[in-house]
Design a protein around this nucleic acid. Structure first.
Lengths: 338, 338
DNA sequence: CTGAAAGCGCTTACAG
DNA sequence: CTGAAAGCGCTTACAG
C-alpha cells in the first residue's frame, strides 16, 4: 500500500538493497536471478505498490505496446453492429496480450490522424477496420512498411496482411438458398459501392444468378449508404418497381432492418411469397409471411484474429528465424448460415 | 523527404549547427529564439522530415497526452447510437487538442483495465462513458484523485466532474407532451435499472404523472436491458396487459425500435390512438397511426464537452492561479424536443 | 547471479 | 538569445 506517487525502479532497488538492473530483470522475468533476490525484490515491489512506467519502458525499448485502430470515416458504416462487436473483441484481445488500443479517425481520403500516431511513435502497428477501394491509409502504411492488418481485403495490393470473410462465396450461398426456395426473380440491396464488402457480395450474387441462368434485372438492384433509412427506401423502390419479385439479397444488418420496416408497413396482404437472404446476426424480428436466411460473419472472431495477427507480426520482429511464428498473409474467417 | 527512420532531435541540431536544447525550444514555440535560428531549424526539420517522439517527450514531461475512455461493459448499452456518436466526438475533440484516446473495457465491477492504464502512466485523465449505480471505476479514480469526467452523473458523490443531460426534466417534458395530447393511461419502458439514466427518466415520468394526478399502474411499466428484442417484448407485454393504454414513454433509441416493430406487426387495425414519447434521434420510421415525440440528447455535444472539460482540468494543473480556466463541476447539455 | 554505466529522445533549470 | 548538463524511468550489453 502506501503512497504510490512516482515509485520508481530506483526506490525499489534501494529498499531491496540491489541495483536497479536487478529489479529490471526481476520484472522482465529474466532467468538468471537467484530465487532469494527475486523474492525480496517482489516483496519490496508490493510493499511500495510499485508499477513500472510504460512510458519509460517504451523509450528504452522503442516499443509503445499500443496498437492503433483506424475506424471507418463514414458514420453509418460505423453504426453497424459489426464494428462494435469487432471493436470490443480487438480491445479485449489486445489487453490480454499486454497492448492497449488507441483510436484513429480520419475523414475519408485523409491520413492526418494515423500519420500523427505513426510519426510520434505512439503505436507499434495498426488495424484498419474498413476496406474501401483505394484506401489512402493502406497506401500510406504500406509505403512506410509500417505493420498493419486490414479487416476486409485490398483490391489493389496482394501483399497486405488481411482478415476477412469470403464474402463472394457467402453471397453465392445466400443467393443459392433463395433459388432453392423457388425464387425466380431475385433483387439485391447493397451498401456503399466504394466498399469492398459491397463489391464482393454483389459479385457473389451475380455469379450465382448467372450460374443458374437467371435474368439480371438492373432495376431491382439498389446500392446505398449503410443505414436503415436507405434500407427502407431501397425496399420500397424495389417492390414498387416490380411486383413479381420473390427474393432479395441484402448485404447488411442495418439495411435489412430498414427494409423490414417497409415490409411491416406494407402489412400482410400485398406480398405473399417473399424470401430474403441477408448478412447479419439474426436479432431482428420480421413479418411471419416472409422467409429469411442469414449469413452471420462472426465479427468477434474477425476482431480477435486481426489483433492476434498484428501482435504476432510485431513480436516476430524480436525473435530469431527459428522461433518465428508462421503468419498467414490472408486469414479467412468462417461465417455461419442460418 | 528522405528516410525518416529515427530522425532525432540531435540529428536536427547537428545539421542546423545548434544545440538540441535550441531545437527543443523551436518545437515548443519558445519566444526567446531569434527569427534566424528558428527559420534554419524549421527548415532542417522539414528537410529531414523530423517528428518529435511522443514517448520521449512524455517521459521528460511526465505527461502522456493520452486520455483513457472507459466504455460501458454492457454490450447492449454500447450498441446504442449514443455511444458511437459520443465516441466520435470525443476522439475528434481530443485530437484537435493534441491528445489521443485509448480505450478501456472492464467487465462490470472490475477495474483491472483502467488501473493498468493509470498505473503505467499511459493516460493523463479519463472519461467514463456510462453511469452505473456505484460504479467501481468512479470509486477507484476518485480514491486516487486521478482526473476524470463522468458522462452521466454520480448518485453517490457530489464532487465528481460531470457532463449530463437533465434526464429528469426531459422525461417530465416528454410525459407532459403525452398528457397534453390527451393520454390518460401512460406506460413506461425503461432500460437497465442499474443505470442512472433509467432511474432519472423513470423519476421524471413518475413526477409528471403525480403532478397531474394520473394513476401509476405497475403492470404497464417495464425495465430491461437496452436492446431491440426487449423493446419488442416490453411493448407486447404492455399492450397485452392493458388494451386501454394510450401513451408510452420510452427511454431509449434501440428499445423504441423494438417496440415499433411490435406495433408494425400488430398492423393498423387493433390500435388507434397511441402516442409515444421517446428518447432518441428520430431516424426510425413508425406506423402513421401513432404519434411520436422525441427528446434528442445531443450525444455529439456531450462527447465534445466531456473531452474539453477533461483537457481543461489537465491543463489547468500546469498553470498558475491567474491563468486558470474556470471549470464547472457539472455541465448540463441541452436536449431538443421534436 | 549481480552491478555500473551508457543509452533511449526529449525538456528544463542554470549559466552566460 | 543559446549551450552544456542533468534528469525523466526504464533496459541491456559488458564485466565480473
Amino acid at each position: 500500500m502506501g503512497k504510490n506517487k512516482n515509485v520508481t525502479i530506483q526506490m525499489v532497488a534501494d529498499r531491496a538493497g540491489v541495483a536497479k538492473s536487478t529489479v529490471s530483470r526481476v520484472i522482465s522475468g529474466s532467468p538468471r536471478i537467484s530465487e532469494k533476490t527475486r523474492k525480496k525484490v517482489i516483496c519490496v515491489m508490493e510493499e511500495l505498490n510499485y508499477h513500472p512506467s510504460a512510458i519509460a519502458r517504451s523509450l528504452a525499448n522503442r516499443i509503445s505496446k499500443n496498437v492503433g485502430l483506424v475506424l471507418p470515416s463514414d458514420e453509418d458504416f460505423f453504426l453497424n453492429p459489426f464494428f462494435q462487436k469487432g471493436l470490443r473483441a480487438i480491445v479485449k484481445t489486445a489487453n490480454l496480450r499486454g497492448y492497449d488500443v488507441v483510436i484513429s479517425y480520419d475523414e475519408s481520403g485523409d491520413t492526418k490522424s494515423i500519420e500523427r500516431l505513426v510519426n510520434a511513435n505512439k503505436i507499434d502497428g495498426a488495424i484498419l477496420m474498413r476496406s474501401i477501394i483505394n484506401d489512402s491509409a493502406v497506401n500510406y502504411l504500406r509505403d512506410k512498411s509500417f505493420p498493419f492488418v486490414l479487416i476486409g481485403k485490398s483490391l489493389k495490393y496482394d501483399d497486405v496482411y488481411t482478415v476477412d470473410t469470403d464474402n463472394v462465396v457467402a453471397s453465392e450461398k445466400l443467393t443459392r438458398l433463395l433459388i432453392q426456395e423457388g425464387c425466380k426473380k431475385i433483387g439485391f440491396i447493397g451498401g456503399d459501392s466504394n466498399t469492398v464488402v459491397t463489391i464482393d457480395r454483389y459479385r457473389g450474387y451475380l455469379n450465382e444468378l448467372e450460374r443458374n441462368n437467371l435474368e439480371v434485372n438492373k432495376n431491382i438492384i439498389q446500392e446505398n449508404e449503410f443505414n436503415e433509412l436507405n434500407g427502407y427506401a431501397s425496399m420500397k423502390a424495389i417492390i414498387e418497381s416490380d411486383s413479381d419479385i420473390d427474393g432479395i439479397v441484402i448485404t447488411d444488418d442495418l439495411i435489412f432492418n430498414g427494409a423490414i420496416e417497409y415490409l411491416y408497413e406494407l402489412g400482410k396482404e400485398p406480398r405473399v411469397n417473399l424470401a430474403i437472404a441477408t448478412f447479419g446476426s439474426g436479432v431482428q424480428k420480421y413479418p411471419d409471411n416472409i422467409k429469411v436466411f442469414y449469413a452471420d460473419v462472426n465479427s468477434v472472431k474477425i476482431g480477435e484474429q486481426s489483433c492476434e495477427k498484428l501482435i504476432d507480426i510485431l513480436e516476430n520482429k524480436k525473435l530469431d528465424k527459428n522461433d518465428m511464428k508462421q503468419i498467414n498473409l490472408i486469414d479467412i474467417i468462417d461465417y455461419t448460415i442460418k
